[in-house]
Simulated scan of single mutants.
Amino acid sequence: MNRIDRLYAMREELRRAGRAGRTAEQLAAVFEVSLRTVKRDISALQQAGFPVWARLGRTGGYIVDEAATLPPVAFTPAEVAALAAALEAHRGQPFDGHGRAALTKILNVMAPSVREETARLAGRIWTNDNAAPHGARRMRTAVESALLERRVLALRYRDGEGAVTSRRVDPQLLAHTGDRWYLVARCRLRRGVRWFRLDRIEHASVTAEPAVDIPMEDIGEPPETARPAHVSR
């Protein structure tokens, strides 16, 4: 299990635990990692905005703040089928694994009859096969982890002329424009903000060094063919 998958699994384990919570020792046993890794993962979840906190005392452990979780939400088959179609069209692209994890959570809480109706409707929607090569998935996972954890990313990058260089970058955002995905990052080699095409990143690994955040206004406006993702109503 890679770290991104473990973080999501740990989050769901804590949700299921409810008020009882889970101790660091219990989480370490479940995920077969060290106590130090558990504490580092909990810190990453907290930095990402997940409402988990440590309860002190004899019955101590990590618990999720119930006041910060959502009540049950009802979805129609058409709504979930639309999400499934969007995820299929996005397969092989950044954060598609996270999206599929969210879809699985929705399906798991739907009534069996509604879930079957959703599956029938989704089966009538065909999309392109955008599956990425295994190496590309590993690279994409590293990029996602660096953005999530706000860590410096070590890259091996091939430019448009075929020259390969090693870079250490502070990841800022992902951009899709002109049918290409780019990692927009502060390049420590070039000492400025650069756009790295994801299909030209030959290798990527997350370092332990915290990344430097750059104000969005210093990065600039999105290109005409791009726009920010919005989650507000």
Rank of each mutant, 00 (worst) to 15 (best):
D218E: 14
L45N: 04
A119N: 04
A9L: 06
G192C: 03
L147G: 05
H98C: 01
G135N: 12
V212W: 02
E79S: 13
A163L: 09
E144N: 02
L103H: 06
E32M: 13
P133T: 09
V193Q: 01
P94N: 10
A163V: 12
H134M: 08
V38D: 06
L155F: 09
M216W: 07
Q47I: 03
I214F: 10
R3M: 11
R151Q: 07
E12M: 15
D218Q: 13
R151T: 00
T69N: 07
A131G: 08
L56D: 15
L173D: 01
V64L: 04
D65M: 09
P94E: 11
P171T: 03
L183C: 02
A89S: 10
E117F: 01
T104D: 08
H230T: 12
L155M: 08
R16N: 11
F31V: 09
N128D: 13
T118V: 09
R120N: 08
I214A: 02
V33Y: 03
V143L: 15
G49C: 11
V30T: 15
P223K: 01
E161W: 10
F75L: 12
G49T: 15
A29D: 14
L27K: 02
A29H: 05
R19M: 06
T165N: 11
R36A: 07
A101W: 11
Y8R: 13
E221Y: 02
R137M: 13
A9W: 05
R233Y: 11
W53C: 05
V184G: 03
L103P: 09
T141R: 15
R190A: 15
P171E: 01
S205F: 01
D199P: 10
R194E: 07
R227L: 08
E209G: 00
R140S: 12
G162A: 06
N130A: 11
N108Q: 15
F196G: 09
D170W: 02
G192S: 05
A44V: 11
L147N: 05
A211Y: 00
V164I: 13
R140F: 03
A175I: 05
P71E: 14
I106Y: 07
L198M: 14
V152L: 06
F75K: 02
D218I: 00
L103K: 04
R194F: 04
G18W: 10
